Computed example of a mutant assay.
Amino acid sequence: MSYSVVIPTVGRPNLDVLIDALVAGTGPDPCEIIVVDDRETRLGPAAARNTGWREARGDWVAFVDDDVVLAPDWKERLWADIEGLPDDVGASQARIVVPLPEDRRPTDAERGTAGLASAHWITADMAYRREALARAGGFDERFPRAYREDAELALRVQDRGYRIVRGARVTTHPVKPATFLTSVRDQRGNADDALMRRLAGSRWRSRIGGAPGRLRSHAITTAAGLLAVLCGALRWRRVAGALALVWAGRTAWFAAERIAPGPRTAGEVVRMAVTSAVIPLVACWHRLRGEVRHRKARP
């Protein structure tokens, strides 16, 4: 048995540290460490991982993101996780740990990263049997971001009769850097959700163990806001006022839900208030864009 390591990268500073850990760590060495730089092609991590595993020689392909931190004995633990697995096991997922501040409550962005610790089948550290990848056809390159492409592949691998197990190795995923509008930019994933629905069916969220989405709630809020503006333009003042109150109330409730579990600092409260007013409209726009773009998508 042998394995290869594939790392898609956009040039994060941690890449050198990651490679050093793979070279110097204890345990059986991989056949090769394949780094696929996506900064020039901009085709996304799905395409980068496909390029990597198709060049790999190992019986197993361990996908590792360029922003994770590996333990010194990661190679040894990976080997223990995949050695002797029965033929019907197509993949082994690491246990992901996201370190959060110990002296305060996490921010909205930090809680978002922390969700990776309980997510199914994320490729921050995921080893696939090469045969399973080949039978499933690899990652679907219609997913342009590091979002949903890993879960969609896992569903296809399992549909072909393979099991996915969770290994004992532990990998650390630091909190992602965030800006004021990170949560707004993250709404681009709604377009990928539209593709996911086309490929995996209307019950795809339950299949991947995901929490219910907020799109329906965002649609109601957005409709109330847009109708308020329209009625105001038509001088239907009472109707416009009532709709504006609905929009404001729903927006305030959404903001309160996001503020409550956080550190509640002045900066975080302002960030949550502003982005909560913008997110519903942006989320609906990206979902509509995705539905149009992927209307003819087939598995």
Rank of each mutant, 00 (worst) to 15 (best):
V10C: 14
P13E: 12
I19P: 05
D20K: 05
A21V: 00
T41L: 04
L43G: 09
L43A: 14
A46W: 02
E55C: 12
A56I: 03
R57H: 09
F63K: 00
D65T: 06
D66L: 10
D66S: 15
D73M: 08
W79E: 10
D81V: 05
D87Q: 15
D87M: 12
D88H: 13
Q93T: 13
I96A: 05
R105D: 12
A114L: 14
G115C: 03
L116F: 12
H120F: 00
W121Y: 02
I122K: 07
T123R: 01
T123K: 01
A124Q: 09
A134G: 11
G137E: 12
G138M: 14
E141Y: 14
E141G: 02
F143K: 15
R148W: 01
E149Y: 03
D150P: 04
D150H: 11
D150M: 01
L153K: 00
L155V: 08
Y162A: 06
Y162V: 14
I164C: 02
V165R: 11
A168H: 02
R169L: 05
P177I: 13
T179H: 11
Q187L: 10
L199N: 07
G201R: 01
R203Q: 13
I208E: 13
P212K: 07
R216Y: 06
I220T: 10
T222G: 04
T222A: 09
A228Q: 00
L230E: 15
G232Y: 00
W236L: 12
R237N: 11
V239D: 02
A255K: 08
A256D: 09
A256H: 06
E257G: 15
R264F: 06
T265Q: 04
G267K: 08
V270G: 04
M272Q: 14
V274T: 14
A277Q: 04
R289N: 15
A297C: 11
